[in-house]
Design a protein around this nucleic acid. Sequence first.
DNA 1: CCTTGACAGGTAGCTTGTCTACCTATGAAC
DNA 2: GTTCATAGGTAGACAAGCTACCTGTCAAGG
Lengths: 113, 113
Amino acid sequence: MNAQALHGHLDALLLAVLERGALHGYAIIEALRARSDGRLDLATGTVYPALRRLERAGHVASAWSTVNGRERRTYELTDAGRRALADQRSGWREFSATVARFLDSGPSSAPAG
Amino acid sequence: MNAQALHGHLDALLLAVLERGALHGYAIIEALRARSDGRLDLATGTVYPALRRLERAGHVASAWSTVNGRERRTYELTDAGRRALADQRSGWREFSATVARFLDSGPSSAPAG
DNA sequence: CCTTGACAGGTAGCTTGTCTACCTATGAAC
DNA sequence: GTTCATAGGTAGACAAGCTACCTGTCAAGG
């Protein structure tokens, strides 16, 4: 399952992983992979631009830090990002409930017609 | 909620409404609106090209019929379309379960940390 | 006859957002 | 100094939905 299916929901996932604490880009990709049991395996070319989008929107803030002599850009949720995440969560719930009406049950599992 | 959020799932919804019986394009749009309590209000410019996509893929078959002197193109699920729908259903379940891991619960609803 | 509005089908071009492919750089192993 | 894992980044391709527009029928109002 690639991010093409996520279209429009990727930003929400990014905010969600950052909710547990600040991470750098590569670690975000690994967190996504780990928490999804390998189902979400995103390319850097997908995640980095998305992170920059979120930063432009003010939902995350980034800072350079040097770890083991390596430059890493660490991303952190802002207050606006936290609000945006709450918003996206309810948006997701509405979206998934709506789609589920069409896809969660087939004709065989319908009660009587 | 617009179809931009549906990205990649629209085809599945279209197949799902056609599962209950053949419909013409306009009626599909109305069925989507009705079954979603108005949440899915798709433009013809969204649905017609999608239908043509599905027809090219062999998932639906269309036929012209004249009703009340009006030409209507009626779409019907093919066997391949039925298989594709079953496929999309399981894809949807996996997708929604995966995203839900990140978005269905906030830190407040987490048990202990 | 002409206009307006609901119904019905259709297309072109724009925009957004992800993907592919590529590049730079450090530190460790060989 | 080559290769691998880690880490950050960009350009251009591509898919798919959106906006705006067009054609046409039928019914109502003038």
